[in-house]
Structures are given as C-alpha cells and as structure tokens.
C-alpha cells in the first residue's frame, strides 16, 4: 500500500507533528506511515482522510501485489 500523505501535508502546509496532534497519535506514527513502514488501521486512515477532507482512496492506494 502506498500513500500520498506527504503530498497532502504539503498542500495543506502542516508538519508531521501538527497532523499527529490533530488525530491524536505520535509523530513517529505519521513518519512511519509516510515512509510506508507502518500500515494504519482503518480508524486512523479515516481520521487522516477527515483532516484532509478527501476520501480515503485518494490518500491511501493499493499497490500491485497487495
């Protein structure tokens, strides 16, 4: 699974720490999601999507082989 979190963050101009605070997780978690090392739960993905006011599928995408 890949995601466009970094891009979305750049568009909205917020830092990892700010995003983390908005959804109530640690900055480490946002960082590992961005570097594709951690797959967030559905709840967390929905919360992230709500911050960016976009559907989840626009931020998190399935890859070949998933």
């Amino acid at each position: 699974m890949k995601n466009s979190l970094r891009v979305e963050r750049a568009i909205k101009n917020i830092t990892q720490a700010e995003l983390a605070e908005l959804i109530g997780v640690s900055r480490q978690t946002i960082n590992t999601i961005e570097s594709n090392k951690y797959v967030p739960s559905t709840v967390l993905a929905l919360k992230i999507a709500r911050v960016f006011e976009k559907p989840v599928e626009q931020i998190f995408l399935l890859e070949e082989g998933d």
């Binding site: 983390a20 997780v25 640690s26 480490q28 978690t29």
Partner: peptide, 8 residues
C-alpha cells in the same frame, strides 16, 4: 506511554 497510539 506518553502518546499511546496504535503503533505503540
């Protein structure tokens, strides 16, 4: 933890 999230 200080921030106990799902990754922790």
């Amino acid at each position: 933890e200080r921030i106990e999230d799902e990754q922790i």
